[in-house]
């Protein structure tokens, strides 16, 4: 029982429980907090699989970026926080059924395949190899992603601009602007 088996099993448990709460917890804020648990568990699994750069990138981008954005959004719409409602079993029934069927079917397929040829992960540092991959075969994708980043940035700001008006000063300026 190597230590890493223990760690991987712990990550599975933590990630599964956290994902369960993200889906079913009545209060959105606790769902967001449990999302942190599943993201950190996935980062731990990346480490156990030898993808060290990915584990750190996942922590920086997901936990340090996306979750901050999610928490800002949840804090903004605080009315949901006060209304602790469970969306009703009826509402959860169909999606849960659909997800359970897909899960059972795919698990059966995965287990029916033979996984004998698996190899051990070789724990080489991956950040340099990923750099060469980003510069080599994936160079075009690398530039394409930056265009998507730019369009996402400008699009998000344009969409959000009306909501970001500073009420007081802008109204004064507009009111004075006309006469």
């Amino acid at each position: 029982m190597a230590v890493s088996d223990l760690f991987v099993a712990f990550c599975f448990l933590l990630g599964g429980a956290a994902a369960f709460f993200t889906a079913f917890h009545p209060n959105i804020l606790y769902a967001a907090i449990s999302l942190i648990g599943s993201l950190v568990a996935v980062a731990g699994l990346y480490g156990a699989l030898g993808a060290d750069f990915l584990a750190a990138a996942q922590l920086i981008i997901y936990v340090g970026g996306i979750l901050i954005v999610i928490l800002f959004a949840v804090m903004m719409s605080e009315d949901i926080y006060k209304r602790r409602f469970f969306e009703g079993a009826k509402k959860y029934f169909l999606p849960a059924l659909a997800a359970a069927i897909t899960f059972a079917g795919l698990v059966k397929i995965t287990l029916s395949a033979d996984w004998s040829g698996a190899t051990k992960p070789d724990f080489e540092p991956t950040s340099r190899a990923m750099g060469w991959a980003l510069v080599g075969p994936y160079a075009l994708v690398f530039q394409y992603v930056v265009v998507v980043l730019l369009s996402g940035l400008i699009g998000a700001v344009i969409i959000a601009r009306p909501a970001l008006k500073m009420k007081k000063i802008d109204e004064d300026l507009e009111r004075l602007g006309e006469d």
Binding site: G16, A23, A96, A99
Partner: peptide
Amino acid sequence: LLLFSFGLIAALARRS
């Protein structure tokens, strides 16, 4: 798969 199915449930059933 487990993460994916919980994500699917959350995406379909969540109201907010």
